[in-house]
Design a protein around this nucleic acid. Structure first.
Length: 360
DNA sequence: AATACGGGGGC
DNA sequence: GCCCCAGTATT
């Protein structure tokens, strides 16, 4: 079924389609390993449309490996602010320093060395080296998993270990002799633009007659859905304490969500109680922990924030007329003005609260 | 094999 | 509200 003839047809049709339909994207203008690397890290679990502006800002500020390696981590995180998965930024920064020290500042060109860099797994190593240097290496990620599952009419969850192995082998077996980078990008472009999850555009797909799923009309059944992850709901309160134009902020600690990013003090609320009694409870608790006189008013606003396995409802209170001295706090804290806060890498909730404070 | 790690696009 | 996104690292 997937014999040499099928594969050569597939390669030819796919690459022809890509030549006429590929999107113009900033990282496609100059395909250096550095720029492809940055784009691939940003694109991990993140849609193209979200990445474009971040990529442009980041590569303008850090045009080379050396520039990135020399930066302060806080500045790297600031440019990553809002993109999520902040470990990517820290590992990107660490990898730049490794490249300077161990590879003379040149992005390595052999698969094993690239794979050894922090934040780079099999997909990203293959993507960088194929796209930037046209090396013959396979890829497998969200788009290609779905595309291959449909091409192969895979009848079980493509995310299982066994099926992943089969999909990697399929990806490798498909690689053309030349233009492997374009071919890999074409696979992903087809997966995202045509072979999309819901209602794929099989009528305009360049390989629809090679796809048994399309021929049999099984698009909604394949790929087989993975087990769903359960969510639980958390309720948290953020508190804004003003003291002579300065606001108390804290840095999230190790093992905590948003590690090393700045945030406002937050407390978990039990779910069923009334907001007002929570506010009073928090007031007492905060007085205890900071030694400050704390007055509460609010809530300022509420927001919901979905994270992988749980959901947060965040409430925010604005404090006023705070006097006294800070005695002790659970994590690193500092009093910062709103303009100082603008320069600090903030969690998404911190960022939204700060924006709200600036233009109420 | 499961889980942590963010935030947003699109319907 | 739900699914999914150019995944990686850890347990």
């Amino acid at each position: 079924m997937y014999d040499a003839k099928w594969k050569s047809n597939f390669r030819r049709k796919l690459i022809n389609w890509f030549d006429g339909h590929q999107r113009e994207l900033p990282w496609r203008q100059r395909k250096t390993p550095y720029r492809i690397w940055i784009s691939e890290i940003m694109l991990q679990q993140t849609q193209v449309a979200t990445v474009v502006d971040y990529f442009n800002r980041f590569t303008k500020r850090f045009p080379t490996v050396a520039a990135l390696a020399q930066a302060d981590q806080a500045e790297v995180l600031k440019l990553w602010e809002g993109l999520g998965y902040y470990r990517r930024a820290r590992q990107l920064h660490a990898a730049a320093q490794i490249i300077v020290e161990e590879h003379a500042g040149e992005f390595p060109t052999d698969f094993e060395s690239v794979l050894a860099l922090p934040g780079i797994g099999r997909y990203t190593a293959g993507a960088i080296l194929s796209i930037a240097l046209d090396q013959k290496l396979p890829i497998l990620e969200g788009n290609t998993i779905r595309l291959f599952a449909r091409l192969m009419t895979m009848q079980s969850d493509p995310r299982t270990t066994d099926n992943q192995k089969a999909l990697w082998e399929f990806s490798e077996s498909l690689l053309p002799r030349k233009r492997c980078g374009d071919f890999n990008q074409a696979l992903m472009e087809l997966g995202s633009q045509i072979c999309n999850p819901k209602r794929p555009k099989c009528l305009v797909c360049p390989v629809n007659n090679l796809c048994m799923t399309a021929v049999q009309g099984l698009q909604e059944q394949i790929p087989v859905a993975s087990k769903k992850v359960k969510y639980e709901v958390l309720l948290e309160a953020a508190i804004v304490i003003n003291q002579q134009e300065r606001i108390l902020v804290r840095q999230c600690g190790p093992g905590e969500r948003w590690e090393s990013l700045w945030d406002f003090p937050r407390y978990t609320l039990s779910q069923n109680a009334e907001a007002k009694s929570h506010a009073q409870q928090l007031q007492l608790q905060l007085k205890e922990e900071t030694g400050l006189g704390v007055e509460l008013s609010g809530p300022l606003f509420q927001m919901k924030h979905a994270v992988t396995r749980y959901r947060i409802t965040l409430q925010c209170w604005k404090g006023d007329s705070v006097t006294g001295r800070l005695r002790k706090t659970p994590t690193p804290t500092r009093w910062a003005t709103l303009s100082e806060i603008e320069e600090m890498p903030m969690s998404i909730t911190g960022r939204k609260i700060a924006r709200k404070l600036k233009s109420p």
